[in-house]
Design a protein around this nucleic acid. Structure first.
Lengths: 204, 204
DNA sequence: GTCTATATTTCGATAGAC
DNA sequence: GTCTATCGAAATATAGAC
């Protein structure tokens, strides 16, 4: 539509999203009011409403891109034929997504308002597809628990204050390694290599 | 004070706590109003206020016992002299706590209102003590990430709908095993036993 | 794009009758 | 123990001037 090079309609709309992200990370979504967002921007509520007509719209704008990435991650992984490659691809994608949304991930995971939005969002099934890749086909109880701990653990580690000192690259690598230790296909006794795992595919 | 055998003052107070637990698990703490609790019990708000004078009191009554258990877990683990035994004890205690509060754990972990309450609660330092046992002394980045993923993963797995089919005993065992795989002291190459880990101390 | 002003609803909380 | 009635504050949201 408009010339994308001349700052079409960015300023106010994006400032709302940035303020919302700050406050969502600090107080959760339900714990953040439009008044707080307006105050944080130094404007009034009405100015916020001019950009987004409902609070739901703001939330969707903030978390939408991450949800869409989830679907891309699931699709990319599905294109891998070997189980191991598919798992590697999905895990890499999830870790990358979490690293790039280090502040937001977990707050959003729990908020009842967000849960409702995700339920209605097209990306909803992607989460289940990725979980399926984590568990593998026909999983036993142990595989279910490992997948659950990895899914949850990655999300929680992404926002853990104890890991604030780690750089994105460092955290990314350790998250992948740790998750891989739990998820790697356990073909016979292959644990001769010790505890540490060789980094696979390479693309991170 | 009163005779503990003749149902002293239970009914209404406990009904409030049960209703609150149901709703906290479904909508989070901030997402649950006193009106919702009253409706869920089939009474009015005023009837709820007769039992608990503030919403904070209700939250504390619901999560307080779990917080106090955290301190007991940390104390019991600290009584173990060997690093390995201390870790086993702490992990057993945490897994047990999560199993026994399967519905509540994670919702409570994030809610901004709960976070404020925990900050002021005497059990606050216990969480850090247990985390310290998970990381071990003078931890490197890998140990920090493992501990973070275990702490978070246990909490998330406890409420994961994908694990609803598992019995408490089954889930308890797999949670411990999976966490142990990430936390067990890595002395030289000790991984000859494969992936599976023998259940330690016994007391669960 | 931002403002003032206001409508409407719901929140937590209190008073007092039964 | 539960009720009706109500308070003040804060929530989402809208109308209309600048």
């Amino acid at each position: 539509m408009a010339d994308p090079g001349t700052r079409p309609d960015r300023p106010a709309r994006e400032r709302v999203m940035e303020a919302a992200l700050d406050l969502f990370a600090a107080h959760g979504v339900t714990g953040t009011s439009l008044q707080m967002i307006a105050d944080h921007m130094g404007v009034t509520k009405a100015a916020v409403y001019h950009q987004f007509h409902t609070k739901e719209d703001i939330v969707l704008a903030v978390i939408g891109p991450a949800l869409e990435t989830l679907t891309k991650v699931a699709d990319a992984a599905d294109r891998q034929r070997a189980h191991r490659r598919r798992l590697e691809s999905a895990l890499n994608g999830i870790v990358d997504l979490i690293i790039k949304n280090r502040r937001l991930t977990a707050i959003v995971q729990f908020d009842p308002m967000v849960a409702e939005l995700v339920r209605a969002h097209p990306s909803r099934t992607s989460i289940e597809r990725i979980r399926g890749m984590f568990t593998g086909a026909d999983p036993d109880a142990s595989a279910l628990v490992s997948a659950a701990m990895v899914s949850g653990g990655l999300v929680m580690a992404g926002i853990d204050p104890a890991l604030d000192g780690l750089s994105d690259e460092e955290l990314r690598r350790h998250l992948f390694d740790t998750a891989w230790r739990l998820l790697k296909p356990r073909t016979a006794s292959l644990s001769a290599s010790g505890g540490r795992v060789a980094q696979p595919t390479g693309r991170v």
